[in-house]
Design a protein around this nucleic acid. Structure first.
Lengths: 126, 126, 126, 126
DNA sequence: GTGGTCTAGACCACC
DNA sequence: GTGGTCTAGACCACA
């Protein structure tokens, strides 16, 4: 259900956190939907339960998930007012910024970058 | 000369390292060109000199820079053969991968992402 | 500097979190002030460093503390816009609600409760 | 009859336990009075019957309630001597302590706190 | 069955 | 020196 790569340099709990955010933003996880239990996820990915739990707790603090004692965590029914559920396009701001900065410093042209993007996109078509 | 942002989450030494790599790859820094001294850069950006030094040392180890006793470091005249100076397009692989992954998980379309990219690009026109 | 009681039933990291919030709200900790290092606090209170770290991380996520790599954490200079630094009076809302509910269910009078409060207050005068 | 809030952070069984204690202490529940059945309460509040049962059992262990086979539990006729039915004022000790600690750490004055208390009190007037 | 808390200890990244 | 991440394992609280 999630793609977690311990080698990637990015902390595991943060990978999970981002993916849940994206799945909520894209509607793949709807309000009320229960998330996989900490133990299940931990087992499935051979990862320490605390690491999973950490991601879930942070998401709860963000207001994106809700805890119901004794039951699995669920997607929050009404995201808190502080803009807890960012728009989908806002969520690629950071990687976009990163890409544009790098490309400009390499003095690439807009066309070259767009072409490279389209290529990567079709390669990732599965 | 360089854009270093201590808040960005990306380690400072790595920001510097990448930017030097890009400027060499794009020809803005040519073989033989001297780099700013560690002290100057540190002062100019209010950053610990050890941090600058670390970036330079890593670039030297890569074969991209050369150290000459008593003189400032320079861009290496003939970059080593171990792929030290990758093609320019290869240098945006990482940010591209990151972007495509995020966008697909958000179930964005290729068109939306390209449009967002073009927008960011023109915004960064200075 | 802080009062941490492992026996109190309230999680240690949460006790610390609340006390920092209060000290910031009351001005005892001013923007820019460095906090005790994780290791120092852990040693001083014979508590696992991770427990301290957890409180600090949550406070950072709240926007109340700032991380500066390699240096101790500090009180955030400009608390984030989402009302990260609640007014002092707002911070006793929860215990007040609790008290009033209990008192009313016990059918105590306002006078009795105020008198009990004043008594407790002077007892805690040190 | 009872106010049970699953969201409040305080365990449900404990909320119930405290409220029964208070209603006995204040005379709203007199010795011999039958309590609502576990099933009824559970249904009315959409709460797991085991949770209700747990509160009742703890109150029975305290000596505040009595169990009669086949009949509903009742308020104990002569509460046991181990301080089972504390004075009413003693029952707000805990919330009072909590409030005073928080207020002092926030460097509020006695006047401010009393004023806030009076305000809350009148607001809860129904 | 769920999640929460804490520990002890190892290792890493950064400055 | 600073904080961050992860693990393994124990124990608790709640429904």
């Amino acid at each position: 259900m999630f793609i977690l790569n311990p080698q990637s340099g990015i902390p595991i709990y943060r990978q999970l956190q981002e993916q849940v955010r994206r799945m909520v933003a894209s509607g793949q996880l709807k309000p009320g939907t229960p998330l996989p239990s900490v133990r299940d996820l931990a087992l499935a990915h051979a990862i320490n339960p605390m690491t999973i739990s950490r991601a879930y707790s942070l998401l709860e603090a963000e207001g994106l998930l809700e805890r119901h004692r004794g039951k699995p965590m669920t997607v929050a029914s009404q995201p808190r007012g502080n803009g807890a559920t960012p728009k989908r396009l806002e969520q690629i701001e950071a990687p976009l910024d990163h890409l544009v900065l790098a490309a400009r410093q390499l003095q690439l042209t807009e066309g070259e970058v767009v072409r490279a993007l389209r290529k990567k996109w079709s390669e990732s078509d599965d």
